[in-house]
Design a protein around this nucleic acid. Structure first.
Lengths: 176, 176
DNA sequence: AGCAGATCGTTCGGTAACAAACATTTTCCC
DNA sequence: GGGAAAATGTTTGTTACCGAACGATCTGCT
């Protein structure tokens, strides 16, 4: 077992293990690269930008969402940040402890909690986000403009493809 | 602040917050879709395949790597699974507790720890992986074959773009 | 031979992540 | 108007996740 493995070696090794079953290597390869790319970008942005401000990835994303949409309700923030509401509760607690965000009850519907940035939180985002976007830009600049738009469109197609499956499953469940 | 926001609304809201600074919206949009897609796929595979076997995403990935490359050293497993070695230690502990994997010292170099699947672990992978790959295949099948290969190539380009930055940074550090 | 430096996996401390169960509040429907 | 059902955010319990510091081991150099 060598240190690094080529795609071909991996495919052969896989075939040895699954036997005769037909596998979709192209799909496996595409999605494994999807995760690899997402991880690489996330790590790079964390190390290069967020770390200096002692900020985690999720903390930053939540802060960003609330920065853009001031006073947003928590369930929408969770959805926008692509995390569960349970996770959001914890993250907000951390950010609140650092004086970057505040929770605010809604008068009309007392189940709701709205989030706002403090002045400190706003100042932080005004400083961090341009840095963050500059690194995003640097990374993407390695691709041609044309490739970027195709890439973005395909990524959206992937999200849609998953939603299609999820919806079909939900409907099937509702039958029962 | 409406419930859902179009891309245009978000861009306008961002401009209101960053003022005159020039932002790279295309880059921000591409990368935000990258994370969205990765999350969606990961959640779908977890819910549809792994959950039934009481298996976490990372646990599965580690198991998969060790299944394919039997006896691999932990640092290489961590690298292949795209997690830190500290995380791997914890995950292996969990998998070991469930009797799916074993740790094995290396005779020659006693710092090393090699990982192997138990019979139970192997049996589990032989069952899960085909299911896993079938769902991967379903998701990707929404895209044309041509799109998939372009997509895969671009994802690799993104990984390379990040590595380029990382390497440049490392070299700059070595100067000092 | 012997010791400075590198390498390897683990531990530690702190944060993130989610499902499920929960209390509170609102809505729906008769 | 009143009770069932739905919606909202929090708590609980478990696992994942990483950087930094650590002890053990190996390598290279002289």
């Amino acid at each position: 077992m060598p240190d690094r493995h080529t795609l071909e070696e991996t495919e052969r090794a896989m075939k040895d293990h699954v036997g005769d079953l037909p596998l979709d290597f192209a799909a496996a390869n595409a999605l494994s690269n999807l995760f690899r790319a997402a991880n690489a970008v996330r790590t790079e942005l964390t190390n290069r930008v967020l770390r200096q401000h002692d900020m985690t990835w999720t903390g930053f994303v939540v802060l960003w969402v609330v920065w853009i949409w001031d006073g947003m309700e928590t369930r929408h923030v969770a959805e926008s940040a692509d995390i569960s509401k349970a996770t959001l509760t914890g993250v907000v607690k951390t950010l609140e402890g650092r004086g970057l965000i505040v929770r605010e009850g809604d008068e009309r519907d007392r189940r709701l909690v709205r989030l706002r940035l403090t002045d400190e939180g706003t100042a932080l985002m005004e400083q961090i986000y341009p840095e963050f976007n500059a690194v995003e830009s640097e990374i993407v600049s390695q691709l041609s403009e044309r490739k970027v738009s195709t890439f973005t469109r395909t990524l959206r197609d992937v999200v849609k493809a998953v939603e299609l499956q999820t919806d079909a499953r939900d409907e099937a469940r509702d039958e029962a």
